[in-house]
């Protein structure tokens, strides 16, 4: 019998005796991603995004306004605590804008990691009953987070424009604004890769489920969210830690793009390399974990 690829997507006419649409074999090599199959399930992806976006805010009074309130309230808190009291923000920029420019991408990043990490657990009832490409839930939670982030970004532009029109701050982002799409993609890949690794490991070690929340919080303090990298002295012992963190250039990049702050753009290469490595490792581990997953839940 002619061998076909494992779980080959549905092909053309199945009249030919040699062609099989679905071939289930003991193992699937991790690199066989089967993007075609994910593409065929794109409607499921869309439905899951829709579910995420509509279901979360049901039964809340403010509804979708929470999308905007969440980063705004966090930024206000940071502006008061770290900006006004601890004087960590850059001078000359309104602290609320300064913190929003980093809080929005950070919560996007943290949200994708947390949701991806929990994907095998939250979707277990589904995955033990129906087959669909197991990458669909993480991809859909990434897409819904990205949508939320874009809405927040639009809100940021309105907010900053109000500052400019009222004359209280001459907001003028430069050409660096064009790097935004690149920054968003880099951030998504970093978060997805990390999340998939954690998701794969949590199936084996349930403790990680609790740890990941703290780890992500800790990571925030190791990223230039509450302070700019420029405020950390070059000889400070925490500087190497910050520079080793692949999300640091991305967060700094968002600030540079949205507020025009100084930024060493070449450091993004480091993030890109890290993102590729994390993503490949994540896909490999995730594929391995989901294969045996239905047997252990």
């Amino acid at each position: 019998m002619k061998k076909e690829g494992a779980m080959t997507p549905e092909g053309g006419a199945h009249a030919a005796e040699g062609h099989w649409d679905v071939v289930i074999e003991p193992s699937t090599p991790w690199w066989r991603l089967n993007l075609g199959e994910i593409w065929r399930y794109r409607d499921l992806l869309a439905e899951m995004v829709k579910r995420d976006l509509t279901a979360i805010y049901k039964q809340t009074i403010l509804g979708p306004i929470w999308v905007l309130l969440q980063p705004l309230i966090t930024s206000l808190m940071f502006a008061v605590i770290f900006g006004l009291m601890a004087r960590m923000a850059l001078p000359g920029i309104p602290p609320v804008l300064f913190y929003m420019s980093a809080v929005m991408p950070w919560s996007f990043f943290a949200g994708v990691i947390n949701k991806t990490a929990a994907t095998l657990i939250t979707n277990a009832p589904l995955m033990t009953k129906v087959y669909f490409p197991r990458l669909i839930p993480p991809l859909s939670s990434m897409a819904s987070s990205a949508f939320t982030f874009l809405v927040q970004l639009a809100f940021f532009f309105v907010f900053a424009a109000v500052y400019r029109i009222s004359g209280s701050y001459a907001w003028a982002p430069g050409i660096a604004l064009l790097t935004l799409p690149l920054l968003i993609i880099l951030e998504m890949l970093l978060a997805l890769g990390t999340g998939l690794i954690v998701a794969a490991l949590t199936t084996k070690y349930k403790d990680l489920n609790f740890l990941i929340g703290f780890a992500v919080q800790l990571l925030m303090y190791m990223s230039p969210v509450i302070f700019p990298l420029a405020k950390v002295a070059p000889d400070s012992p925490v500087r190497p830690l910050l520079e080793a963190n692949p999300i640091t250039p991305v967060i700094e990049g968002f600030r540079g793009a949205l507020l025009g702050t100084a930024m060493d753009w070449s450091t993004l290469w480091y993030s890109a390399i890290c993102a590729s490595v994390l993503l490949l490792a994540g896909l490999a581990l995730f594929q391995r974990a989901e294969r045996s997953y239905a047997d252990v839940v």
């Binding site: 019998m1 099989w20 649409d21 679905v22 289930i24 009832p125 009953k129 129906v130 087959y131 239905a294």
Partner: peptide, 27 residues
């Protein structure tokens, strides 16, 4: 057959669109 878990040995081949109903109203 529903592809929820993989076999340890052997192969399963199927033609066309496969739907498996192990439960109604899943998800």
């Amino acid at each position: 057959l529903s592809r929820i878990t993989l076999p340890t040995e052997g192969t399963i081949k199927m033609r066309g669109k496969v739907s498996s109903l192990l439960e109604v109203g899943t998800g």
